[in-house]
């Protein structure tokens, strides 16, 4: 351990997450806020993929696809962990429906107010 390039992807995750939070907290444009939410989703997905990565003794690790008859042990030795990849797929689908709903809301808000500027969309008090 200790190689700087091994940590780099994790740093990227944290950075993406932070940028997403920053966009949501500071930006006043609905579309930019939606982009912030997408960044958070993507950072988490990236982290999940990284969690599943493992370097086998044989060198390169492969995608978890079975193309010929393999024993479970052989499969385990040569491929990355398939579970997080399944989780990421599900998370992406969920992220997609959330973002789709957000975009619909943003379009409807634009119809009502004629703007995406959050400072001018302020009917609620709290």
């Amino acid at each position: 351990m200790g190689m700087i390039h091994e940590f780099f992807p994790y740093v990227l995750c944290v950075l993406l997450f932070a940028v997403g939070l920053y966009a949501i907290a500071v930006k006043k444009n609905l579309i930019k806020i939606i982009i912030g939410v997408m960044l958070i989703h993507n950072a988490t997905s990236l982290f999940l993929v990284l969690v599943g990565y493992r370097m086998p003794e044989t060198g390169e690790s492969a995608a978890p696809i079975i193309t010929r008859a393999l024993s479970g042990e052989e499969f385990f030795r040569q491929s990355v962990d398939p579970v997080p990849q399944a989780l990421v797929l599900t998370a992406i689908v969920i992220g997609l429906s959330v973002v789709a709903l957000m975009v619909v809301m943003a379009v409807r808000l634009h119809e009502k107010y004629g703007t995406f500027d959050l400072t001018r969309i302020r009917k609620l008090r709290g």
């Binding site: 599900t90 689908v93 429906s97 789709a100 709903l101 619909v104 409807r108």
Partner: peptide, 9 residues
């Protein structure tokens, strides 16, 4: 009206 599509794989 609109409807959220609760897609789950």
């Amino acid at each position: 009206t609109e409807k959220g599509d609760g897609n789950d794989t």
